[in-house]
Nucleic acid binder design. Structure first.
Lengths: 111, 111
DNA sequence: TTATATATATAAACAGATTGGATATATAAC
DNA sequence: GTTATATATCCAATCTGTTTATATATATAA
């Protein structure tokens, strides 16, 4: 139980930040990002496809990312996402915010 | 803007853990806990009264805390909360979980 | 008497995440 | 050829913790 995936509330508010960070390294698509997060989180963060696609739509509306159809290599078609200048700016802000949250939550949660 | 209070999504999933940690040090009541969190978070976490009272109700139903009316000293009546054995056990689990989340989110969010 | 700080509580709304379902392509196994 | 599996996207309905708005009540200072 203790090593299962985290409750969805834990990720809430960080999903966009994590997606932006991955897109900083280069364009990618939903399925790949989901797999990447699962790997990089020691198998503990299993973002559902519906979650990531609704996040994409929201972020596109907010101008953080833009999208284009790409070719698939052995599977269904892929919709690629690219981070915008605004997206880079928002990522920088969220990174700074995380640094603060991290310090403060450690104070509040630990003895 | 950068130093304002955090979005409510950031606290989501941690509210109960923070309340349990405060109750570990001794019984307390809603108003005091809210003030305490605001102080200990450098003024960045301003939990709304409705949030804390609904959390109390949820936690009491789950058997993490129990409650009793106390006397007020210069103000309205107070409802005190006390952590139960189950609450102490859940806190220990959440603390362990936070240790993991902290490490993993730092990996996912930072370059 | 007015304003402010102290203190609790509930209904309705909000928003990000999940569940469940649908659709579609390519490849490996039977 | 048919089935199973991996790849890949998307939407409607639902869930759930938090907020907004509102109500209630006591004590003290201006």
């Amino acid at each position: 139980m203790g090593s299962a995936t985290f409750s969805s509330d834990i990720l809430r508010g960080h999903t966009e930040t994590v997606i932006l960070k991955i897109l900083l390294a280069g364009d990618s698509y939903g399925y790949e990002i989901t797999k990447r997060i699962l790997e990089d989180s020691e198998g503990r963060i299993d973002i559902k496809d519906a979650t990531i696609y609704t996040a994409f739509r929201r972020m596109e509306l907010d101008g953080l990312i833009c999208t284009y159809w790409g070719e698939a290599t052995g599977g269904a078609r892929r919709r690629y996402y690219s981070i915008t200048d605004k997206g880079r700016k928002v990522y920088a802000e969220k990174l700074e915010e995380w640094t603060d949250i991290d310090r403060i939550l450690n104070t509040l949660i630990r003895k």
